[in-house]
Amino acid sequence: MIVAEAKPIKEILEMIDGFNKILVVGCKGCVTVCNVGGAKEVAILASAIRIAKKKKGKDVEVGEITLERQCDPEYIEELRNIVQNYEAIVSLACGVGPQFISERYPEIRVFPGVNTRFMGGAIEHGVWAERCAGCGQCVIHYFGGMCPIARCSKSLMNGPCGGSNHGKCEVSPEIDCIWDKIVRKMMAQGRLDELLKIRPPKSWLTARDGGPRKMVREELVK
């Protein structure tokens, strides 16, 4: 999933200062799963905005709605008869959502309510970790099912480096050395010899370095 975290409420209040009709829009996709932008978080933010504005003596109207997804135009369309009642929208989706809303409804101000962090998963309740860098050419099968692009601090294709220390990365003791894990997993699978093969420098044309990406699947295009 795309993992996001809430922006500090102070930052959101500063963004919407001067607006008195605000719609908080949640998303039932990734941000619901990572507890940052679902119906519950929409209700919390809306309540916090009402309290903070009331404290400042301002009369405010805060609406709440949670869309199926904010990354598909048909769900953004559900706001069609609602947006005109508001002066500003705070989107609790990843960075995609507020842009889709802003593109569809250019007349209204749209603010991001969360910071999008990475593509990853929950390794325990309340803890998420990065797993994918979206490089566009998946290679995890060469490396025991683990991604050195996303999970090695240097994105090494031929690791580990000299900074691997008792299974930890020299960047921080909080970071596992993924190459330590890769070597151990390949040993356990009896595939260590596969790591002797030198992997050539990776082409980053399919990654972000090739500029903003777009994907067309002709068989799906109407």
Binding site: P8, I9, K10, L13, A48, I51, A52, K55, K56
Partner: peptide
């Protein structure tokens, strides 16, 4: 922490 940021 949130309340403090909200001025409460």
């Amino acid at each position: 922490n949130m309340l403090e940021q909200m001025g409460i």
